[in-house]
């Protein structure tokens, strides 16, 4: 705060307090502005900052809630979760596996569809983009209900259609890899529409003249795609990769109701571990897990930003 009003030691005392008074007068003059923005800061302090600080204290304790005593255990909760919690380790591996399934397939699919919708003389663009976006209104609970019938081994649509082309029934929700693919399919159905729309918005923002110039220089459609389209979309891609990662780490309802984390915990997620700790009144460990998940998200985001650093700016990648 002091920095904002530019005080330095060279300024005489009297002048400094005069500046302070002028600043306070200015702020008082704008009291209505502060009033208008205050709701966010009040609820952020009460429901964001305070629980986080208290949660840190809690993460160093053992506490089963209510009137029961809170016992200081130092870093034991963190050590226990990181070194002696096979379920959490499994959940972390599952998250990484799901990321490996979802990111490449989801982004490639959404990009291809967006490019198709961006064809200049396409009719019915508005109808298509609305229909693709429709799954946005469904809840994780309802999607899980629909997909569990869809993927049923004996009575589901997916196996019926696979049977038509001669593929024997796949036990979707009963075996490890098929179950992970099931979760991937569900998340694609729910989320692709949003990604398609974001890609489409970004594609329409690209200057047509770039393509025309490339055409004059003799570039074909494929070259234009990889030399112009993809580089121009890099900031959007980066944004999607990061939000998809955070979404997967916080994944809960869909998987809870589709597979309940099974089979053999192969779709168990980190947020399920958190909910199980809450259900078991193990609040100290739950609070510690929150910080661990926060740290994982920050580390992954940081790594992704570093790895994709050249993606931040568009200009650097636009070679003719």
């Amino acid at each position: 705060m002091a920095q904002a009003i530019g005080t330095t030691s060279a300024i005489p005392q009297a002048s400094r307090s005069a500046r302070w008074r002028a600043l306070l007068r200015e702020m008082w003059k704008h009291r209505v502005d502060y009033l208008f923005i205050s709701p966010f800061f009040i609820v952020f302090l009460v429901f964001g900052v305070y629980p986080m600080l208290w949660g840190f204290r809690l993460s160093l304790s053992r506490w089963a809630g209510g009137q029961r005593p809170m016992e200081w255990v130092g870093l034991n909760n963190y050590i226990g979760l990181l070194t002696n919690d096979p379920l959490l380790g499994k959940a972390f591996l599952n998250t990484m596996m799901l990321l490996g399934w979802i990111l490449p397939t989801g982004l490639a699919f959404a990009l291809v569809v967006a490019v198709m919708l961006n064809v200049r003389r396409l009719r019915g663009r508005g109808i298509f983009r609305t229909l693709y976006f429709l799954p946005f209104v469904t809840s994780g609970v309802i999607v899980a209900i629909v997909f569990s019938q869809f993927l049923d081994k004996n009575y589901g649509w997916v196996n019926l259609l696979l049977g038509k082309i001669g593929i024997p029934p796949v036990p979707w929700l009963v075996e490890a890899i098929p179950a992970q693919i099931s979760v991937t399919l569900l998340l694609h159905w729910m989320g692709s529409g949003t990604n398609i729309l974001i890609f489409l918005g970004a594609l329409q923002a690209i200057d047509r003249e770039l393509y025309e110039a490339a055409e004059i220089d003799g570039a074909n459609a494929v070259q234009s795609f990889f030399r112009i389209t993809v580089p121009m979309l890099r900031p959007v891609l980066l944004f999607m990769i990061i939000t998809a990662t955070i979404g997967l780490i916080n994944l809960y309802a869909q998987v809870k109701l589709l597979t309940n984390g099974g089979p053999q915990n192969n779709t168990y997620t980190m947020f399920m571990r958190m909910m199980d700790l809450i259900a078991g009144n193990r609040f100290g460990e739950g609070a510690a897990l929150g910080f661990i998940m926060g740290a994982i998200i920050l580390v992954i985001t940081f790594v992704q930003l570093r790895l994709l650093r050249s993606w931040w700016t568009v200009e650097g990648n636009l070679k003719s």
């Binding site: 705060m1 904002a4 600043l23 200015e26 702020m27 704008h30 502005d33 502060y34 923005i37 966010f40 800061f41 952020f44 429901f47 964001g48 629980p51 986080m52 208290w54 949660g55 809690l58 955070i246 780490i249 916080n250 980190m270 947020f271 958190m274 700790l277 809450i278 609040f283 739950g286 609070a287 897990l289 929150g290 910080f291 998940m293 926060g294 998200i297 920050l298």
Partner: peptide
């Protein structure tokens, strides 16, 4: 108004805070 940009910066920064961090104490 004074500190407008700083306060808006705080708001943007909170977007980066993962909800999982304080879920248990919030509950």
């Amino acid at each position: 108004f004074p500190f407008k940009n700083q306060l808006f910066g705080v708001i943007l920064a909170t977007l980066l805070l993962p909800a999982a961090i304080n879920f248990v104490p919030f509950y």
